[in-house]
Amino acid sequence: MLVLRESYFIYVRNLKTWLAQPWMIVAAVLSSAFMFLFFGEPLRGITALPGFPADDYQAFLAAMVIVMAVVFSGSDMAMVLLTDMMSGYVDKLLLSPVNRFSILLGTLLIGGTRAMAQVLAIILVATAIGVRFEGGILGILAVIVGATLLGVAMGCVGLIVAMRTRSVQVTVNSWLLFMPLAFLTSAFMPRDLLTGWFQVAVGLNPIEYIMVAVRAVIIDGWVWDSILPGIWILLATTAVLIGAATYEYRRATN
């Protein structure tokens, strides 16, 4: 219970810090809108390819915009933590008698919150440009919950990067680490239509299965064969990464 109380206070502080930087939020929303604009518009004609699963390319793209935004939020979380490490605020928290795990939890929860808020904004943008969610309101809720979990998982990766390297130049560039996770996927084209080594690599990327599940909810509705693998992989990835981040955090703070 004490851990929950402490995590709550640390979470609220992190939330206020985030909200105190409105440009971070504006930029996050704008970058997603740009994705629809700069990828969706020029690639619109792809839907005419034989075997392409959607009529509306923006609807196909929406899964990519959502998943990519959340994946790259891991890099933001690395910078958030590194900023607190550099200013000495993490040490300030470590000097207090709070449980170490409360600090970690308060930080991971903000990763989830940021992902949740961003995905909510993306869904609004997508709806505004005419994307229909076949999975309905429940589908939208499911996507938001999934994105929150993925935000926590990617936040874990970001935390590990910041704690391991303690370096601005590495952390600022940590989006490079997330790039293959985000792009070695069926982001622009269904996996069936991909070829060669790229298709193989996409099949090995856990994020791909999450993206496929999100896309299924958007363009097909509740097609469990596409959705379930994504759910299992999301849960497993999140669990493993929380474990790894906890281990790394213990190592760094003892």
Partner: peptide, 24 residues
Amino acid sequence: LQEVGLDDLSKGRDFLELQGVLYG
């Protein structure tokens, strides 16, 4: 501590109140 950390984006009062609740 010299290099240990204030929370620049937080208000003075909020900073103190958070310190307080974290110390119980």
